[in-house]
Write a protein that binds this DNA or RNA. Sequence first.
DNA 1: CTTCGGTTTGGCACTGAGTGTCAACATTGC
DNA 2: GCAATGTTGACACTCAGTGCCAAACCGAAG
Lengths: 191, 191
Amino acid sequence: MSLTERKRQLVRDELTEAALKLLAFQGFEETTIDQMAAAAGVSRRTFFRYFPSKEDVIVEFLSDLGRKLSHSLSTRPATEPPPVALQNALRVFTDTFWEHPEKSQRLANVMVSTPALLARYLERQVTWRATLSAELAVRMGVDPEADLRPAVLVAVAFAAFDTALIRWVAQGSTTDLNTLLSDCFATAFPT
Amino acid sequence: MSLTERKRQLVRDELTEAALKLLAFQGFEETTIDQMAAAAGVSRRTFFRYFPSKEDVIVEFLSDLGRKLSHSLSTRPATEPPPVALQNALRVFTDTFWEHPEKSQRLANVMVSTPALLARYLERQVTWRATLSAELAVRMGVDPEADLRPAVLVAVAFAAFDTALIRWVAQGSTTDLNTLLSDCFATAFPT
DNA sequence: CTTCGGTTTGGCACTGAGTGTCAACATTGC
DNA sequence: GCAATGTTGACACTCAGTGCCAAACCGAAG
């Protein structure tokens, strides 16, 4: 990575970190972009050169993971039935959460408890669903236009994930997210 | 209903109708609140006395239905297993769509194809999920705090509904929404 | 060391969403 | 007719987001 790229990444991290602190402290609506920019030591205008909107400071982090999802699914062995493959594909999320526990916790907390952020996150999820459905359709060897099943299975998998995530936050991140996810999948896809 | 209340409802309907026309014609981002207000013959300030945000002109219509959801579930016979009861509870939506076909179509079209509107709709849905989960928990006779199942089942039901809705719009509202919904439920809740 | 080309940055001005306030006006009840 | 209440439009304000331009910065070539 070049020097300028690393500097960019540095500013980016500084912004998310500053934003996370402010949001956790005073809430999303009460925090202005000027405050976040000032806390990171850049101008308001520069903020928008790193994030297209106020919501994205938080949501981009998950969007990065979301983009890896369909690739993650494609690397699952073909022997795995769709539900198992989907659950394992979602490890891109749970693994990253596991690697950065405290950041993930704060992030998930703010996101789930802030309607505007939750909305943006769910909006992104819809786009991931589309690409994942396509991926799952080829895996199942069916036509995604004619067959509803891949789309439904993906939607159900995300429903399980969301439920696990919301529950995880509600319980103060005390239980293990992966355990919760397994439980949710067990109900969503009874054997 | 009193005269003032009827007048209020009249203005409200006028606003949604004007908004729907404009949005279908020029898209959500390109339409300003001034335009919608002017088209309905009221001031910009009055618009906000009827809808708290630009998105709500469209989304409120569905929110009204969402509020009826848990009541709808509570009136389903106790003999129905959860998936069936949930599917039938969702008839609040499909029935209303059936009663106002062309309005529902335009509305769903705009909503599904506009990220900002879809986001708001999904955000609302999360709140319905919470109340529906509680309702389903009492129906199942379990503790909604300790038991994940009601929350997961509700989430899966909405996943099926969303998939059906998106597919319905994608197919140009040619197929019957209820048929699509049944198909999606069949995959989401295999017998 | 200097100059050149590309990128990053900050400041400024502008549009549009959303809110508080107030005065004008209509409606309902007495 | 009159008072209480509710609705409306106008104005002013904050904040999100964008376009534009000039200054600062940085790597490379001379």
